[in-house]
Amino acid sequence: MSKLLDLQFLAGHAHYLLFIVLMMTGLFIVVDKTNLVKKIVGLNIFQVSVFMFYVSIGKVTGGTAPIFPMDDKYHVDKEALVGIAYSNPLPHVLILTAIVVGIATTSLGLALIVRIRESFNTIDEEDILHIEQEMTRDDNRKYGNAMGGLA
């Protein structure tokens, strides 16, 4: 606990700022770009910022990779073990899962874009919006007069 807080004091602010910049960049791209592929890219940047956030919170000051030190015969080096500090591996493991999920999301998103391109002939959101508005208008022309004016 206290070590985590120490970390926050020492270097915390700098890397948090970085995450926030990355996160906002990603979100901005998602919101601003009309190209569907670029939106997915933005989503990836957004997710990566979170992955890095997770990796960083596992860091323990002075900690090394959480692997037992080995001697020549590939046995655990009990002497080297004394006083050694490890980074917390759990967030890393967690984010491994999240990375997998991120890849799945990206591939599914791209697959959807392929299908959208096939049926709308465009991957630009504005164009798709126009097409969809046109479709809605058609629907309303065709079906909008429910109840013979009684509605």
Binding site: L43, V50, T105, G109
Partner: peptide, 24 residues
């Protein structure tokens, strides 16, 4: 109706943002 594709895409974008917020 091909609009199902864009519906799924929109849902994907929003759902992923939501899930990522949850992870944060």
């Amino acid at each position: 109706d091909r609009r199902a594709l864009t519906a799924a895409y929109d849902y994907l974008i929003m759902g992923t943002i939501g899930a990522t917020f949850f992870v944060i």
